[in-house]
Amino acid sequence: MAEHTRAGSRWLPRILMTPAVATLFLWMIVPLVMTIYFSVIRYNLMQPDQTGFVGLMNYEFFMTDSDFWPAIWNTLVLLGSVVLITVFFGFAIALLINDPFPGQGFVRILLISPFFVMPTVNALLWKHMMMNPVYGVLAQIWTFFGLQPINWLTDYPLLSIIIMVSWQWLPFACLIFMTALQSMDREQLEAAGMDGATYWQKLWYLYLPHMARSISVVIMIEVIFLLSIFAEIYTTTSGGPGNASTNLAFLIFKQAQLSFDVGVASAGALLAVVLANIVAVFLIRMIGKNLD
């Protein structure tokens, strides 16, 4: 019996892990191998008669595309801006609504709502009703203050996308910070107050260290979802004008769906995987120790 239990406790965890590890491994490795294969052959859906091994030509084609470096840059700018905006304002809003006030519960419900909006609705809502240069709400506000309305999606396409995505993720950051703030040690705060600590000192020495882990969690989750922003770009600017709002995900999509070039798109996909890994390594270096 004892023998049996020991064997069981050695094998059972592995057996329980297997479905998750195996399916995820297949989910990762099969597309990866196929992508590697596609990326070194000539494979254009419009020219099915041309096939054969082409070596690294697809990579060269993708990387020398004039949209490539702007797309990498846009991906990182989009990621960095949204993370900064949501963490900063999310923290500020969480501090603002942490202590009780009339209507706190209702304010919470209003704040959380944008997180549940699907990206396609988010994009269409902002594109038409908020940012339309003639009828949009923002144009009306600009006119009210006697300013020339801005044609957001044409003149500031990347900023427009950043606004949309931030609007969606701000509630997420805010909620996590709010929950974390609730577990702050009240007595410690009061003691610091008695000792004459200013608000900023409390913020720096008490709040921030307490929040380190939740800030890491927010950054981690946001990076995971923001590296491959797609629907917002697809439904609003289509990456334009020119390449002004094309990120890496959208550039690959353009190669696959619009140029029908599976080979080049696959090369691009592998470069995206490399970029994701570089970001992941940086991320784990930076905040990994907080995630234990």
Binding site: A20, L24, W27, M28, V30, P31, M34, T35, F38, M220, V223, I224, L227, S228, F230, L248, A249, F250, I252, F253, A256, V262, A265, S266, A269, L270, A272, V273, A276, N277, V279, A280
Partner: peptide, 16 residues
């Protein structure tokens, strides 16, 4: 496991 989630979905689009 988390790193598989960081790979842009578009990277797996064609094979899937």
């Amino acid at each position: 496991m988390l790193s598989t989630k960081m790979m842009p979905a578009v990277g797996a689009l064609v094979p899937i």
